[in-house]
Amino acid sequence: MALMPKRVKHRKSQRGRIKGNATRGNRVVFGDFGLQALQGGWIKAQTIEAGRIAAQQYIRGEGRLYIRIFPHKSITSTPLETRMGKGKGEPEHWVASVRPGTVLYELGGVTEEQARICFARLAHKMPIGTKLVRRRLA
């Protein structure tokens, strides 16, 4: 089952604009290394899940993976071969709206070498540019 909210206030949302950089969720908090977005964009629930699997298959039981984003936003579409009009389409999938600087995933309990390889596999699944970031010591 792909990620999506359990309860929502409204089934459909307006598209909105991704403006500026992330001011929250832009630090490594849980693990030792993080994958940080360099661009803004929508990341589908399926993509988040694909990234999780790609990372999990590499670390397999050694470290811990943390997913820092969640698809809160529903995206609608009208079916194929449908005439224009008749209102907004039905929700088709869910996305996480990501600003540049957001930490998408974190890894703990692995070496930097392992984290680098793992995030390289994971970054292939992402529709935006990313980079590896380290936890900053206090």
């Binding site: 792909a2 909210p5 359990k6 309860r7 929502v8 089934r11 399926q46 899940e49 039981g61």
Partner: peptide
Amino acid sequence: EAPVDDDGDVAASGDVAEPEVIG
């Protein structure tokens, strides 16, 4: 203990059940 991987639990298609609408 290492958490159990649940790789097989992924929906194959994009069709998903809808969440509950508050109110």
